[in-house]
Design a protein around this nucleic acid. Structure first.
Lengths: 192, 192
DNA sequence: TTAGAAACATTCGTGTACGAATGTTTCTAA
DNA sequence: TTAGAAACATTCGTACACGAATGTTTCTAA
């Protein structure tokens, strides 16, 4: 797709009711004058901004340390858990197994991890971190922005707790339905 | 890549020190016994789980309503803002312009939006929602899980506030450095 | 023992997501 | 006026990310 670049001055859309054509400074509310369901909207926007910040941070990591956020996440999991099956690694980092395959592919190409088919059960593949991987994992910064990581530490504990609990509350609410990826599930009905 | 599926019982990696080969129930801590920087780790994990939940919800939307989360987000923005330039839409939904191009492509294919090159300034392309798009946008559920959306409304306001502020605090900390995508930036130094 | 279920890893198809590069068009200053 | 900057949309290349489908291998019950 995207090959139809030949669209010129189209005139076949009579949509144009509200918001009179003039784009007038579209941005005038930001985090302030929220219209309807205030909190929900603010939460949605915050989540989107957080996701974006994480993504952007990942690209910076890739430039400076030759490793992306998800890759680093997997590497750290392997570092502290020892060799893992693909499935287990996936659960550990809250990704689907199919996603992890690709990440491991790239880590393997870079020689940071190794795959080894289990002799006892040949369905399984053990993924283990290499010495090079250990180096990288040990020296790379937090998978979270250094800034956040740093700022977090300097926040009064009360606020750290508040943020942590708020996020976990959101997780609970979101995963309430299903999401099998959660290890064991021992968080209880909702707690807080 | 991923063509080298011919790896059998590799034996060329002498890594295997800690975590004696036995995978022993890898998951035994969950949200409880966190080792080091407790809060940071819990925050990272929560964020990852939230992102995953959003992604999964998006796929459900796609199945039931023929529209994904990001697509719905753009549609809603157009619904309440009227026609927008690609750039402006991108800022509105906190995505990069290049990402928005693809989303608009797919919405356009489905006839939910239309592109129109501005006659006055031919660099610009106005994106406007179609009648069909208006229908979908009006009937589709929240881009957030219904469950969360619902649960949120039933939470004591104090908690809604607490969650909202916590998320916005995280946003502040994360975006502290740069991230131009934020419209106008009127949030102040950090507030809270 | 043997057919089918179950557990695994992987592939496939699709849709984000981003920055860098590209191509137009418009603006701006010499 | 005209060369270069700036504003736009878009393409390109790469990496996630997921579910469904596939292929092996192992388990399990008839």
């Amino acid at each position: 797709m995207r090959k139809t670049k030949g669209f010129e001055d189209g005139k076949e859309n009579p949509e144009k009711k509200e918001a009179s054509s003039t784009p007038r400074d579209v941005f005038s509310e930001g985090t302030a004058m929220i219209p309807k369901n205030s909190y929900e909207l603010r939460i949605i926007q915050s989540l989107r901004r957080i996701i974006r910040a994480i993504e952007i941070h990942s690209r910076k990591l890739a430039q400076k340390h030759q490793i992306t956020g998800p890759q680093l996440g997997c590497l750290l999991a392997l570092l502290e858990e020892g060799p893992l099956l693909g499935t287990h690694l996936a659960k550990k980092v809250y990704l689907s197994p199919s996603t992890v395959v690709g990440i491991i592919d790239r880590l393997e190409e870079k020689g940071l991890v190794a795959r080894e088919r289990s002799p006892s059960d040949r369905r399984q593949v053990q993924v283990s971190i290499s010495e090079a991987g250990r180096q990288i994992a040990a020296n790379a910064p937090s998978p979270l922005q250094d800034r956040l990581s740093e700022a977090l530490k300097n926040l009064p504990e009360l606020e750290q707790v508040s943020i942590t609990l708020a996020l976990e509350k959101v997780v609970d609410l979101m995963e309430a339905g299903r999401i099998d990826a959660s290890p064991v599930l021992e968080t209880g009905p909702i707690g807080l």
